[in-house]
Amino acid sequence: MTATEAVVQTESRRSPPRRGGPPQRSDGRALRRSPLASVGLHAALIMASFIAIFPIFWVLVTSFKPDENALETTPKLINEPTVNNYSEVLAGDFGPFLTWFGNSLLIAGLTTVIGVFISATTAYAVSRFRFPGRRSMMLSFLVMQMFPFVVLIVPLYNLLLTFGLQGSVIGLVLVYCTTAIPFCTYLLKGYFDTIPIDIDEAGRVDGLSPFGVFWRLILPLARPGIAVTAFYAFLTAWGEVGFASAFLSGNSEGKTLAVGLQSFVSQTQVLWGHLAAASILIALPAVVVFYLVQRSLVSGLAAGGVKG
């Protein structure tokens, strides 16, 4: 057994499954909760869940209505249900929906991969090495989030033009990465801080370089943190409108879903049914990503905020 394996094993044996696991104390308290309190708790949570999903549920309901039925003064839950809205949107009656979908997936995917990777290396360096400039870099990440980014569209446009990236996917991806990096780095640094440094040292004893330690040992252990970061980066890029409309080429083929849909909102103000169907189609990938990472969300996000 290598030193690394030994340390990883003892660590996993030693540390209780605190992260993400249900709090053990609750079992004791739950037994003593009166039936009335349980009913109240469930009632409150059901109401909150209802409020959380209702607006989206209503879009879903509307997406099956013909456009004119979406404009009733006394809306009904079901009214001549049809899937025409979906088939027409997918068939490209309102612009090349599937092309836009592909563009959005490509841009959000690249943002996620690049953003998470470079945030992770930075976060690892900040977590493990005490190099000059470390604290000021983190502080400047905080300051970066204070500036209203939309105001930077003109200078950014000029900048991308200078580098020949204006109108290109990679230019937009880099801008998205920049907006996602500060929080991603902060979160991952918090997560890496919770991974014992013994593991790094054991890895070094086994002859791994610091990069090898990061890539082969720490990243796999930081999966929950990576999952939240990826979720955050994906969402940053997936639904964004402002930069996408400014920095992508003007032709219809190059648009993202969010931008494409905006043009269709302004042209066809009354097509609520179609708009609802398109919204559901756009929300789906984000919800899928969410479902994949949701188990990691709590533990992944916790480490960012909890020191020590």
């Binding site: 959380a52 989206i56 905006q262």
Partner: peptide
């Protein structure tokens, strides 16, 4: 409950905006 309560976070802002405007 947790999944349902976190859902608004996962929905792109302009889809939620559309839902609420409606």
């Amino acid at each position: 409950y947790r999944v349902l309560l976190i859902l608004p976070w996962a929905v792109p802002a302009f889809v939620s905006a559309f839902a609420w405007r409606y």
